[in-house]
Amino acid sequence: MNSLYTSGVRQTTSLQADLERLRNGDTSASLLGQISASLAAMSRTIDDYDAMAKREMIKAKQEKAQMRVQKFRSDYTEFRSQFETLKADALEQQAASQRAELITASATPDTPSDTRRRFQTTAPPQSTLHPGLRPSNQPETISESPFRSATPYDSYNRDFRALDEHSFIQNTESRLDEFLAQGREVLDNLVDQRKMLKGTHKRLLDAANTLGLSRQVIGWIERRSTQDMYIFIGGAVFTFFCFYLIWHYFG
């Protein structure tokens, strides 16, 4: 449970740093995806920590863990609201900059060659529909003249391309979020495994030191036992010799 708490604190610190970068003007797609993945990982960590806190047997530790869970949940809610607000502001700024670029581009006068090329007729893109499903009134040539009325094919083509681009962007964003979340999870697992291995290594060293001390004590006891045996044998021989002298001279 301590490892989950440490992971939650580390994720909180990382999210604070990422939100500060976003607040300072870094609106890159990688940063947005990283923050989304961090929020998802933090939500899973909070749920796991809450589940472990409910299984805690000691009442004091359980209450302390529940307080930490409440703190994590409040931080998560605050981070989520800040991210949504900053993301909306960033998207609005990007849209404003794109509108300004379009206005600037439209205000730039065209050269005569550009004007002639715009009014030239171009061949329409090859349709992938079945011949029976193609519109019968589809023109063979498409002119970019402003006096030409829009055809159903133009509207269909624009809608199809816009839908395709939107789907591609959404799929790319979701894949990036998944990759970032997986990377975060793998990193957290590696950190937890490193801590566990360090603890195991420390316990093994303690056990080795304890075994070494035990061996020294056992060797010292064995040597002491051998010395005591020699002292006992010598004392017994000396006692029997004294008995013999007493029996010989006083018997």
Rank of each mutant, 00 (worst) to 15 (best):
Q66D: 09
Y5Q: 10
A88H: 10
W220G: 03
R117I: 04
D75A: 13
F241D: 04
A88R: 13
P109H: 03
S14Q: 15
G235F: 12
D110C: 05
P131Q: 03
A90L: 04
S167E: 10
N2T: 11
Q170F: 06
D50W: 12
F119G: 01
R68D: 06
R73M: 11
D110M: 14
L19K: 03
T226P: 02
K202M: 05
E20Y: 00
T210L: 08
T12V: 09
S174W: 00
D228R: 12
Q120N: 12
S136W: 00
E78F: 09
T108M: 10
R44P: 00
E101D: 15
K195G: 03
F232D: 09
V191R: 15
F83V: 08
S149Y: 05
A29T: 09
M1V: 09
K202V: 00
Q70K: 11
D228E: 09
N137I: 00
T104I: 05
P124I: 05
R80P: 00
R223P: 01
Q11A: 15
T151W: 04
Q216W: 03
R223C: 06
A90W: 07
R23V: 01
Q94E: 14
S7K: 07
M229V: 06
N2D: 12
L15F: 01
S106R: 15
K54C: 04
L180G: 00
E144I: 05
T128L: 13
G234Y: 04
E173F: 04
D228H: 12
Q34I: 02
S81Q: 15
Q94M: 12
T172E: 13
Y244D: 03
Q120M: 14
R80Q: 14
A88G: 09
R10F: 00
L129R: 08
Y244K: 04
R161S: 10
